[in-house]
């Protein structure tokens, strides 16, 4: 019965959905970083004249979706589903965005793995013939995440060197059954991996095992090697997680040293911008993918990319109760060719 699955975890799309438009909106700090030229909108004011950071985040996501629609030269009526999620409790940013967007809505919680989770589900909907076009989106905001997961903004605390900086921004991708590419050719949804890390300052360390598991499973299922990709990029493992992935993947027999990096490392200049281990948050892989990766693929500088957004699925309550951090990673292959 199952025709499109290969190996134990991967789906190969016979008719790969095409990406026909994307958008990326970021806050001022991200707009100061090394990828500033790739983003569609850089906000000068990260509240975007809203009265709370939560409202600002919802507005950023809403505008990102509208911008992706106009970048794809289609209208809202051409879309059938909105697949989105974010970091806040009960994914309020996405639901309040969906309130403004008149589309049937699937709300996801995958923490910072939401971008590839929504792309995976969106691709399955489109390729399965359940829709012609869907929009996949996610957002995060430094200040709304900080108050939910860490300390008040004006509290004078020092951040550990393993800690990461939540990216303010949103990214949206329009997937279509027809189009000129780039295409989503494979997806490898990941399993939860939890090696008992309880330190919420060390997300990279907590999520790295999930990334390693998903990446090696992807290679096993597809038969590809790291060399078959122009870029292998994880979502927000940061410097600590990247070191672990490089090291342990080598022990698994895969050498990633040539073409592997992490969105959290790309988006900020760690030294200049004092972001310690790098960026994080749903928007981290979302804006790097919808901004940098997509535009480089259109230019032909990148042709096949493996994007692995990584998520830490803990909550402030589980942390207080001393529970460890469950990590997840979903891999998506984006290819300029249909394979």
């Amino acid at each position: 019965m199952i025709k499109k699955r290969i190996g134990s975890q991967t789906i190969k799309f016979p008719n790969p959905p095409s990406i026909i438009g994307t958008s990326s909106i970021v806050g001022p700090k991200e707009g100061d970083g090394p990828l500033k030229d790739y983003f569609d909108i850089i906000l000068e004011d990260d509240t975007w004249a809203q009265e709370s950071f939560e409202k600002a985040e919802a507005k950023i996501q809403e505008e990102a979706i509208k911008l992706a629609i106009s970048n794809a030269n289609i209208s809202m009526n051409d879309l059938q589903y909105l697949v989105s999620g974010d970091l806040l409790n009960q994914i309020i940013s996405s639901s309040y965005t969906a309130r403004q967007i008149t589309l049937p809505y699937f709300g996801l919680y995958g923490a910072c793995s939401t971008m590839t989770e929504s792309l995976s589900i969106g691709s399955m909907i489109v390729e399965g013939g359940f829709a012609d076009k869907v929009v996949c989106a996610t957002s995060s905001h430094f200040s709304s995440a900080e108050r939910q997961f860490r300390f008040p903004l004006e509290y004078g605390s020092q951040r550990s060197f393993a800690s990461q900086w939540t990216v303010t921004g949103a990214g949206a991708t329009i997937l279509s059954a027809t189009g000129e590419g780039p295409y989503i050719t494979y997806i490898t949804p990941g399993k939860i991996k939890d090696f008992g890390i309880t330190d919420t300052n060390n997300m990279g360390g907590a999520m790295a095992p999930a990334a390693i598991d998903t990446i090696s499973q992807h290679f096993k299922d597809t038969g590809y090697n790291p060399d078959d990709y122009d870029l292998i990029i994880t979502g927000d493992l940061g410097l600590v997680g990247k070191r672990i992935v490089l090291d342990l993947m080598r022990k698994e027999g895969y050498d990633l040293s040539q073409n592997y990096t992490d969105c959290g490392i790309k988006i900020f200049d760690g030294v200049e911008q004092d972001t310690h281990a790098g960026g994080s948050g749903c928007a981290c892989s979302a804006v790097v993918f919808n901004g940098y990766i997509y535009k480089e693929m259109l230019k032909g500088n990148l042709n096949r990319v493996l994007l692995i957004s990584t998520g830490a699925l803990h909550s402030p309550i589980s942390t207080l109760q001393g529970e460890s951090i469950p990590g997840i990673a979903h891999a998506v292959t984006i290819d300029n060719l249909k394979d």
Binding site: S160, F161, G196, I197, N202
Partner: peptide
């Protein structure tokens, strides 16, 4: 790797203050 080994390993990868 078991959990304890990984936790120790991950701890070593954190830059020291």
């Amino acid at each position: 790797m078991n959990n304890k080994e990984y936790q120790k390993y991950a701890e070593q990868k954190i830059p020291k203050p």
